[in-house]
Design a protein around this nucleic acid. Sequence first.
RNA 1: GCUGAGGUAGCCAAGGUGGUCACGGCGGAGGUCUGAAAAACCCCAGAUGUCAGUUCGACUCUGACCCUCAGCA
Length: 310
Amino acid sequence: MSHILIITGQTATGKTKLALQKAKELDGELISCDSRQAYSGLDIVTGKDITPGSRFHPVSQIGEYRLGFYELQGVPLWLYDVANPHQEYSSYDFQSCATSVILDILKRGKIPIIVGGSFFYLRHLLYEIPSQHIGADWKLRETLNTQTVSELQEKLQTLNPDLYQELNNSDRNNPQRLIRKIELTMHGLSLENYTRMNPECTLQKKLNLPDLSINIKTCSHATPEEARSAITDRVEKRIRAGAVQEVQDLLAKGYTAEDPGLKTIGCKEITAFLRGEWDEKTMVQKWIQAEVSYAKRQLTFMNKYFPSIG
RNA sequence: GCUGAGGUAGCCAAGGUGGUCACGGCGGAGGUCUGAAAAACCCCAGAUGUCAGUUCGACUCUGACCCUCAGCA
């Protein structure tokens, strides 16, 4: 019988610290479930827990993604630097990388400890068995992105009235979600394959390990004020650590705000600052605010899908 | 002290011959989520500086007072 531990929760609650402690206790290895720390070159802005001297140990490759680990106080930490900022790294990509790493860790007789607050990614790993793989069609998305919401609504309604019918008010007004639905339909989605999400955890099935026991621990801030204060400290620390320089270097290397990796809280604000749109104080305030809002959205997600004991 | 401008929600802020007034944005609360998710959306709450006067009716008009800003002293 094998075990897996998941440590998730709001940003700035000390998840990694806890995970590291558990890894030492249980002889485990860490797997980052973080949609942003998966990008190389964003070390300071995303607050990766690596010391300047430590280096990446590449191990294998899944498609475009490179799997490897950093060592953190002797504990391997996987799924950092999986992609470069030009690349897409979707929840699907995460779960395929993660399953591969989990199996590898288990094979070596260690405990996988998944740590991170990207709930959408975590949910994809734990609950979904997509029976029909329909990836992103960026060419299509590009054309659809020029259309208005009502145009997109009309389009989906024509192409797939049943699916449109299923959508709630929030999704019907959400261009990205409408585009995804159109994309699915145009690539031959069959509705039976797109039923409601499986409420049961399906990771065991995915890994083909019926005995796998999964423990989930969630971390959250006691109050919104506490969240804001922890986030403020953290952002200020990252600024002092050279976050602005880091983003400037990325831009100098030819990366742009349009690159998937730079669509990251902190990057956006710093980019606006570097372009002269905001002064430094405004940039810091906006960064903190964006991070606070994110933490709130995390809590909503968490309460719904991971209400387990903190 | 004088002159001018102004006081509308936690902040920024629009408006109208007096008619249930009260546009927005930010922030706050809650929510949505099947390959962009640190994304993109939905939704709720909340306001006319104070006191009088005119009027059937004042956020709007009048007066006084309080406060803020600019200029002059």
